[in-house]
């Protein structure tokens, strides 16, 4: 498994980045390198992923070598250089969720959506992700679809979750 799939420039699915918008985000952090992770997160919120052109623009503006910006962009799980689906399904695999059957739930999502964890469905509707603890362990296993939480899930509830979107 390499990170090469992360590079998405020109291979379709790439959006046109509005540089003025990116500049606005950079300004919000005082054009300070320390804010680079926050800038990337804000850009990702805008485009649902972190477009390569935006990374390059941020680095150029801040005077940070692209290689260093790329390091940050690939280090953190919160950032994705791959376009994501309309909805992100996060299946919690924190300890409590693991013990209470989280792995069975994510496997059922994989079967139901015909994707592997980390990938996006062919119709670009769902991206399936595992996440290490969403901090609602009392409701294990927890599934979060964007902002909506589903507690005490089982493989049986997977269909219902998918249908809700």
């Amino acid at each position: 498994m390499t990170q090469s799939s992360a590079c998405c420039g020109g291979k379709g699915g790439d959006v046109t980045v509005d540089l003025a918008k990116v500049d606005g985000i950079i300004d919000k952090y005082g054009r300070d390198r320390a804010g680079i992770l926050g800038m990337f997160q804000d850009i990702q919120r805008e485009y649902r992923y972190l477009p390569k052109d935006a990374v390059a623009h941020v680095c150029r503006t801040l005077g940070v070598p692209l290689a260093k910006g790329y390091e940050v962009a690939t280090f953190f799980k919160a950032l994705s250089l791959k376009p994501r689906g309309k909805y992100t399904i996060q299946v919690c695999l924190g300890t409590a969720c693991h013990l209470k059957g989280g792995p069975n739930v994510i496997e059922q999502f994989e079967r139901e959506l015909s994707v592997k964890t980390g990938d996006t469905t062919a119709d670009k509707k769902f991206t399936l992700e595992s996440v290490n603890c969403l901090g609602a362990c009392a409701l294990a296993p927890l599934v979060r679809v964007d902002e909506k939480d589903f507690g005490k899930t089982t493989p049986g509830t997977v269909k219902k979750v998918v249908k809700a979107f």
Binding site: G38, K77, A78, L79
Partner: peptide, 25 residues
């Protein structure tokens, strides 16, 4: 307030500081 990036290692003090500085953790 600084947001983390979803990396467990950034709970470690020096990695946390590296992250605040805008680097990998």
């Amino acid at each position: 307030i600084v947001r983390g990036g979803g990396a467990f290692v950034c709970g470690e003090s020096t990695a946390l500081m590296s992250s605040i500085e805008g680097k990998g953790g």
